[in-house]
């Protein structure tokens, strides 16, 4: 059996395990909440929402949602979804079983990590699609809102979401390791939430650039003005470094762990 087939069979199994779990629904619910909320507000107050002549309504509708969700809700979501997905395994005493199967331990660790990342990416995609959908729906209900007369700035919003996704990876690496390590999901959840709040508070300090939990805030507040390292945004680079380092360390730690 090759490394690829080990990885694929693990990832496939992780998908089956997500069936009918709260973690699965959470990806959809989280993606829908804000677009739906904005939709309702626009419906109710639609008269005050009519843009000036010739103004593109998508800018306000789309970027406001992205700017509100990314700094706080995205990191919170990541802490929650990571804990929940691994909790499925802990709850079923699964780790000891997986580690006594003829499969390499790395395939267990990285198969699960992949599914966490896929779920997060899926949520970003749902979120993006939900914004477009509800915007278009508003345009159909009230043509004076102008949603059907203008094109949304796809590129800018996709860029913002991608930056946020990469800025999240550092946190994913840390949270995944913690969630795998501690059976009790209060531990990664509690630490994670505290860190997210700290990240929000600390984001104004220049040192926040070294604190992964601040990266989502920074990806919005600094935006294009983020400091560069070797030509790329430092946030992007540091987040990726944090992700790779915690993944490797996490795996090495899990590998030599005594499974009780």
């Amino acid at each position: 059996m090759t490394a690829v087939s080990y990885y694929l069979s693990n990832t496939k199994n992780e998908v089956i395990k997500l069936k009918r779990t709260f973690a699965f629904w959470l990806t959809i619910i989280s993606a829908l909440i804000f677009p739906l909320l904005f939709f309702i507000v626009y419906l109710v107050k639609h008269e005050s929402m009519i843009p000036e002549d010739g103004a593109n309504p998508w800018g306000k509708f789309m970027f406001k949602q992205i700017q509100i969700t990314i700094p706080f809700l995205v990191p919170m979501f990541i802490v929650l979804i990571t804990s929940l997905i691994i909790q499925v395994e802990h709850k079923s005493h699964g780790i000891k079983h997986l580690f006594s199967l003829p499969i390499p331990k790395w395939s267990v660790y990285f198969g699960k990590l992949s599914i966490v990342i896929f779920s997060i990416i899926a949520t970003y995609v749902y979120f993006f699609l939900a914004i477009l959908f509800f915007g278009a729906l508003l345009g159909m209900f009230y043509s004076d809102l102008g949603f059907l007369d203008f094109q949304p700035d796809y590129l800018k919003s996709i860029k913002m979401l991608t930056m946020s996704l990469i800025a999240s990876l550092g946190v994913v690496g840390i949270q995944f390791w913690m969630s795998f390590r501690f059976k009790n999901f209060i531990v990664p959840l509690g630490i994670g939430m505290t860190m997210v709040i700290m990240g929000l508070v600390a984001s104004r300090a220049p040192e926040a650039i070294y604190f992964p939990y601040s990266y989502n805030v920074l990806s919005i507040s600094l935006g294009e003005n983020a400091p560069l390292t070797m030509g790329v945004s430092s946030i992007t680079l540091y987040s990726l470094i944090c992700f790779v380092v915690t993944c490797v360390l996490g795996y090495l730690d899990i590998k030599r762990l005594n499974v009780k």
Partner: peptide, 23 residues
């Protein structure tokens, strides 16, 4: 080993399928 490792939100066939995929 001790308590069997079962995914309680899935049915027996799904549990066995997962185990079969691993092997």
């Amino acid at each position: 080993i001790e308590n069997p490792s079962l995914y309680e939100h899935l049915n027996a066939v799904e549990n066995l399928k997962i185990a079969a995929n691993y092997r």
